[in-house]
Write a protein that binds this DNA or RNA. Structure first.
Lengths: 250, 250
DNA sequence: CGTCGGTTTGATCCCTGTCAAATTAAGTGG
DNA sequence: CCACTTAATTTGACAGGGATCAAACCGACG
């Protein structure tokens, strides 16, 4: 093990990549953008198929409240949710916008460690947490799924930390839009159900900076913004095809 | 459930706290700073007591490498480790500096999802992952512990996201120093084993800004900086006692 | 005592938060 | 269907925090 000693000079961090290329993990395109395909949730889904009942939430209503007793888990049928925490100063951090097919509250045990609110009209299926616990006692593959799920969440948050620190506003917004588009199948424009402030609290920008970042991406031709809530990620071909606006685009 | 609809005007986020005081959770002093006291790890510890063997790492050496096969778990006996990820551009995010008594790699399954390096001389006890897996199959309370552990990690990362976005450099540094001091028992000065760049990559600042943040805290009397690696958090009494430097301390 | 790595300080620039005003969108009632 | 109201988005001006580049400083070590 001693030969693994790296001893990197702390003043030249860029060298890391040169000497240890395997350390570099692209922050786009890996697990963070393909949460569904890599990890399947057959056991959890069967659980929901048998024991769940449907629930509706109006836009803005609270689904889970940080600190309350967490006595259910949810599977989103339709709509978008924002999961967030708020600190004493009133700052809010939205760490995910789960959508159709995603689970809520899997990682909690006794109390919710976050608040979940409906962004638009939301339909979920929920099952009592006790049911999950009972099933966990006997179902080994469900246990595996749970661990995989939580491991995925953790890795995702750590990736978010990295992105938040290492990239500027427009790029963060672009990555978010890209990821949000991922789950939307169609080729047309994608509708953003959440407002600018929500996006800002997710990617760590003020509402105004989110607007500017949108303008920035639009100007560069990276996205097509039909209205303030309809966008489309431009493929490279599309970007090169129409470099309208001013050519003096420094 | 319909009466839970909140419908907050998005332009006045401060109102949230007024109407929903229970949403506010102090970001200091709660679980993030007391990881040991709230969740005990008796089962994991017994596992280590029986099956582990000791391993030493030189400063800078690699303990786990992101992407490699994760065939062990670790308990730190002494020393400090940095757990991080690096992206394609060479930006590094250190999301924790685990110390004596903390576990490493509990949340991984097949492959490491992060890189862990020894900051100073590190001694760990490790057990094969297969041992953990076998024990998990039969030991219910161990399973509970694992879940609690991962839930704690997740909540911690989400709190870090919030802190990273909502507070300025000096405050982030102060919180880090405060938290780092937590596990150090003595009343004297605390030794920082890691360099400025490491701290920067942890709290999202450049090396230089970390220096300035240190100066800032020192000037305000929030910390006592004996040398560049020895500090002490000043209690309120101590701060009020000697407001040396310039009184014009706007 | 000189070298090397790490730390500190300085100067400068850009991103982004904040405050403010303008514009657009979404309702609402006549 | 149109005038009116209110919420949300956009744009503008400005200031501050922090990144960056560079140079000075300091401590460990041979």
């Amino acid at each position: 093990m001693k030969d693994m000693t790296v001893s990197v000079p702390h003043t030249q961090p860029e060298k890391w990549l040169a000497t240890h290329p395997q350390l570099a993990y692209a922050s786009k395109g890996t697990s963070i953008n393909t949460p569904k395909s890599t990890r399947d949730s057959t056991e959890l889904l069967t659980l929901f198929r048998h024991n769940s009942f449907e629930q509706h939430f109006q836009p803005g209503s609270t689904i889970t409240l940080h600190g309350e007793s967490a006595d259910a888990i949810y599977l989103i049928v339709s709509g978008t949710i924002r999961c967030c925490t708020v600190d004493a100063e009133g700052h809010r951090q939205i760490f995910s916008f789960p959508k159709k097919g995603e689970f809520i509250g899997i990682s909690d045990m006794d109390r919710w460690h976050f608040t979940a609110e409906a962004v638009d009209h939301v339909i979920v299926r929920s099952i009592p947490r006790t049911t999950l616990e009972q099933e966990l006692a006997t179902n080994i593959s469900l246990r595996q799924e749970m661990r995989a799920h939580m491991r995925g969440l953790l890795a995702r948050r750590e990736r978010q930390l990295l992105t938040l620190v290492s990239t500027k506003g427009p790029e963060r917004l672009y990555r978010f839009l890209e990821e949000f588009a991922q789950t939307r199948s169609g080729t047309g424009h994608i509708v953003l159900p959440m407002c600018r402030r929500d996006i800002g609290d997710h990617i760590g920008l003020s509402m105004e900076s989110v607007c500017r970042a949108f303008g920035n991406l639009k100007r560069k031709g990276l996205i097509d913004l039909k209205s303030h809530e309809k966008y489309k990620i431009m493929s490279k071909a599309q970007r090169d095809a129409k470099p309208d606006s001013l050519p003096a685009d420094a």
